[in-house]
Amino acid sequence: MKILVCISKAPDTTSKIAFSDNNTKFDENGVQFIVNPYDEWYALVRALEIKETLGGTVTTLSVGGADYEPIIRKALAIGADDAVRIDAAESDSLYVAKQIANYAKGKGFDIIFCGKETINYNGSVVPGMVAELLDLPYVALAHKIDLAGNTATIMREVPGGEEVLEVNTPFVLSAAKGMAEQRIPNMRGIMAARTKPLAVEAASAADASTTVKGYSLPPAKSGCKYITPENAGDLIRILHEEAKAL
């Protein structure tokens, strides 16, 4: 099984969020970046489990600058065989999807794993775009995958229940929570990651289809309002008149 796992970086969840350039850019100053958890915990680890069961290779692919390399080394330490970085500034989702698709085209990957979304932009669109650009089947938000030969049985959550799909390789999948358990790299993996291949390839010609006009933070959270059990009737009035939720 030849597997490609798309790895993106994301700010650590404790980062303070600020914007620069007239609120059109995320201010990375002082921000600690981690491997996007959906890419690491679910996509990469499940890909490694499949490789460990069926044999094959796991390659990671990232689209970004040299600052991606610590993130990529961690993915290699967790167990990926090799890594590719497309040397490009991330712009919009379609641009990133085109870079991934242009790299993957003709390389014979059986499965292209992505996390269901990055935890910073939460777009959830790159894997679908990659599938479309490569003319491959796409299963979104999968939380379980089993393989028998070239046929994958995949479970995904649907509103109020679960859907079971069958798809033949090659295909693109976006991984949701439940797909695998977090794997902490061990020292052997960290040492092996020093010498695993990390290829840097030039970006292919592609244009972004959107431009960011501005970011803004959500309004500050207001305090909690407590209602005593004796005044439970007030809840309806407050929800109706103050919160205007009813």
């Binding site: 390399e69 080394r73 961690k74 902490i184 020292m187 960290i190």
Partner: peptide
């Protein structure tokens, strides 16, 4: 180094 940080992060996560 990046490796120092990965080693620390690994120990902390474990």
């Amino acid at each position: 180094t990046e490796e120092h940080k990965l080693i620390r992060e690994t120990a902390r996560a474990w």
